[in-house]
Computed example of a mutant assay.
Amino acid sequence: MTTQIERIDVTPRMSKIVRHENIVYLCGQTAKGAAAGDVVHQTHEVLSRVDTLLAKAGSDRSRILTAMIFLRNIRDFAAMNEVWESWVPAGAAPARTTVQAHLASEELLVEVTITATIS
């Protein structure tokens, strides 16, 4: 039996979206630009980017299975959570992990990686 893997928005380094059967994997999403703003601003931007990629893959935030959230500073946990909790549909909270991490550049305060289902 052959399983189908579809890669969307592929670069030499990564795919922004990978679909395998009815599962969607998004690469880590971060805010753009050197003046990306505080963690609240960045979280809003990141979750907006997640919405766009999920739609492109044929999914949406109500179908998220897992989320991995990386914070540059764990003291931003409460502020990030305020944005997150207003974004996640009621009754559709995914399994989630949040950790403090050194992100790819100093201005990045939050990165989110998502796994969702299509159906």
Score class of each variant (00 low, 15 high):
Phe70Trp: 02
Asn73Lys: 12
Met80Tyr: 12
Val39Ser: 02
Asn81Val: 00
His44Asp: 10
Arg61Gln: 12
Val24Cys: 15
Ile74Trp: 00
Leu65Pro: 01
Gly58Glu: 07
Asp76Ile: 03
Leu53Trp: 09
Arg72Gln: 10
Val50Ala: 01
Gly33Asp: 05
Val46Thr: 03
Thr43Ser: 14
Val83Ile: 06
Ala67Leu: 08
Arg63Thr: 05
Asp38Thr: 07
Glu45Asn: 07
Ile74Thr: 01
Val83Lys: 02
Val46Met: 01
Ser59Ala: 10
Gly58Met: 11
Ala79Cys: 02
Gly58Thr: 07
Leu53Gln: 10
Phe70Gly: 06
Asn73Glu: 14
Cys27Met: 10
Asp60Glu: 13
Phe77Ile: 09
Arg49Leu: 02
Arg61Cys: 13
Ile69Ser: 05
Ala31Cys: 12
Val46Tyr: 04
Ser62Arg: 15
Val24Ile: 15
Ile64Phe: 06
Ile74Gly: 04
Arg49Ile: 01
Leu26Gln: 11
Ala35Tyr: 10
Ala31Phe: 06
His41Lys: 13
Glu82Tyr: 02
Ala67His: 02
Ala79Phe: 08
Lys56Cys: 02
Trp84Ala: 05
Gln42Tyr: 01
Gly28Lys: 10
Thr43Leu: 01
Lys32Asp: 11
Ala34Gln: 14
Thr30Arg: 07
Thr30Ile: 09
Trp84Pro: 05
Val83Arg: 03
Ala57Gly: 08
His41Pro: 01
Asp76Lys: 03
Leu71Ile: 03
Phe70Lys: 15
Gly58Trp: 06
Asp38Pro: 08
Ile64His: 08
Val24Ala: 15
Val83Ala: 00
Ala67Val: 09
Met68Tyr: 08
Val50Met: 04
Tyr25Asn: 14
Ala79Met: 06
Ser62Met: 06
His41Tyr: 14
Thr52Val: 13
Val40Leu: 04
Asp60Arg: 12
Thr43Gln: 02
Leu26Cys: 15
Thr66Met: 13
Ala36Asn: 01
Thr43Ala: 08
Ala35Asp: 12
Arg63Leu: 11
Gly33Ile: 01
Ala55Arg: 10
Asp51Thr: 13
Asp51Val: 02
Ser62Cys: 02
Ser48Tyr: 14
Met68Pro: 00
Leu26Ser: 11
Thr52Ala: 11
Gly58Asn: 09
Val50Tyr: 05
Ala55Lys: 12
Ile69Cys: 08
Ser62Leu: 07
Arg61Met: 12
Thr52Asn: 14
Val50Arg: 00
Arg75Thr: 12
Ala55Asp: 14
Val50Gly: 03
Ala67Lys: 05
Arg75Trp: 03
Tyr25Ala: 14
Val46Leu: 00
Asn81Thr: 08
Ala34His: 11
Thr66Tyr: 07
Thr66Val: 06
Asn73Pro: 05
Asp38Lys: 06
Ala36Ser: 15
Ser48His: 13
Ile64Thr: 10
Ala67Asn: 04
Glu82Pro: 01
Gly37Ala: 10
Arg63Lys: 15
Gln29Cys: 11
Ala78Lys: 13
Ala36Trp: 01
His44Leu: 05
Trp84Glu: 02
Ile74Tyr: 09
Ala35Trp: 11
Leu54Asp: 08
Glu82Ile: 07
Gly37Glu: 09
Cys27Gln: 15
Cys27Asn: 13
Leu65Arg: 15
Leu71Trp: 02
Ala36Leu: 06
Val83Pro: 03
Gly33Ser: 04
Arg49Ser: 12
Phe77Cys: 13
Ala35Asn: 09
Ala78Arg: 14
